[in-house]
């Protein structure tokens, strides 16, 4: 018995929102252990989201429809990407909706609207967060494209499913270009998902907030959706990295047992990825905002070196 591709598609769409809070919970657990604290457990993010959903919404007087639409849009867009990125199968009918460049632009929609929502209320914090977020993203984008380009060189494709199939089926090669672009990708992913050293997801200290400053005025279910979308975004970025750089064990047949095994393998890869991120976050301190051009500049440099290494050496 095999599962219809559309079924796998649906499975992915359900899996992502359900797993994302657990992934964030896992990251928190590891982080707490690493820093000698007791952790709130794997399920705490679920409880947070539930609590927020139950609460009533308090909306500022001059909030416009943009402020109210943004949470739904953020959640919806990120959920859509779950149908496009191959998590447990490459046989996805909707994967052709967007290649990796279009995927990055889908994230840009979320950022665009979140930044607008930050400015909608008319507080100084919101504007500050939006301004900084857009600055960071504009520096991260060229590096992101370069990393994508370097990865796409190996499979001569920017379509994710194609990249996965080519890389996983081709014979193994030591590719410095991929190693470089992987490091670049990690640096960029930390910036795009608002993690240390670029932004601190746990801070509410006025001058260091970036993402939190934009969503300061949200409450109730709006906040729940935004937080949930943020968790999903983190997991989507990890999945993107896995699909682009460690694609082994994604492609396969559609029978349930094999799907389950691949799903478990995927979760294991995610868990290891989470530990790596915690190591980075624990080892580094948050940067001053005007050091970020250098940080993202090095990401760009690495990605470019990857591209150059591909042409010169491989």
């Amino acid at each position: 018995m095999t599962l219809h591709p559309m079924g796998i598609e649906l499975l992915q769409l359900i899996l992502l929102p359900l797993l994302a809070p657990a992934f964030v919970g896992w990251v928190k657990i590891v982080k707490c252990r690493m820093q000698g604290r007791t952790s709130p457990g794997l399920l705490q993010p679920y409880r947070d989201i539930r609590r927020l959903f139950i609460k009533d919404v308090v909306l500022a007087d001059n909030a416009s429809w943009i402020f109210r639409v943004t949470p739904y849009l953020a959640f919806g867009v990120i959920l859509m990407t779950a149908g496009i990125i191959p998590l447990i199968s490459v046989d996805l009918p909707l994967a052709a909706t967007a290649d990796i460049i279009a995927l990055v632009m889908l994230f840009a929609i979320v950022r665009f609207f979140t930044a607008l929502a930050g400015m909608d209320i008319g507080t100084a914090f919101g504007g500050m967060g939006s301004s900084r977020e857009m600055m960071i993203s504009s520096l991260a984008e060229p590096a992101m494209l370069m990393a994508i380009f370097t990865v796409s060189l190996a499979s001569s494709s920017t379509s994710l499913t194609q990249m996965v199939s080519v890389m996983a089926n081709g014979h193994f090669m030591i590719r410095p270009s991929l190693a470089f672009s992987l490091i670049a990708f990690i640096l960029i992913a930390l910036a795009e998902t608002g993690r240390i050293p670029v932004d601190n997801p746990a801070t509410h200290l006025e001058l260091t907030m970036i993402h939190e400053a934009m969503i300061l005025e949200y409450s109730g279910r709006y906040l729940a959706l935004i937080e949930w979308a943020g968790m999903m975004k983190l997991m989507v970025f990890f999945s993107l990295g896995i699909a682009a750089f460690l694609p082994w064990g994604i492609a396969g047949s559609g029978d349930p047992l094999s799907l389950l095994l691949r799903g478990l393998f995927f979760v294991a890869k995610l868990a290891v990825g989470g530990v790596v991120m915690v190591l980075i976050e624990t080892g580094l301190a948050k940067m001053r905002i005007f050091r970020l051009p250098e940080y993202l500049g090095s990401a760009f440099l690495l990605a470019t070196l990857g591209m150059i290494a591909f042409f010169i050496l491989e």
Partner: peptide, 19 residues
């Protein structure tokens, strides 16, 4: 289609549907 693909209608209607 192996190189790259994009679907405007799916993105547009998909977004509307999901939202």
């Amino acid at each position: 289609h192996e190189r790259a693909s994009y679907s405007g209608p799916v993105v547009f209607f998909g977004l509307i549907a999901v939202v």
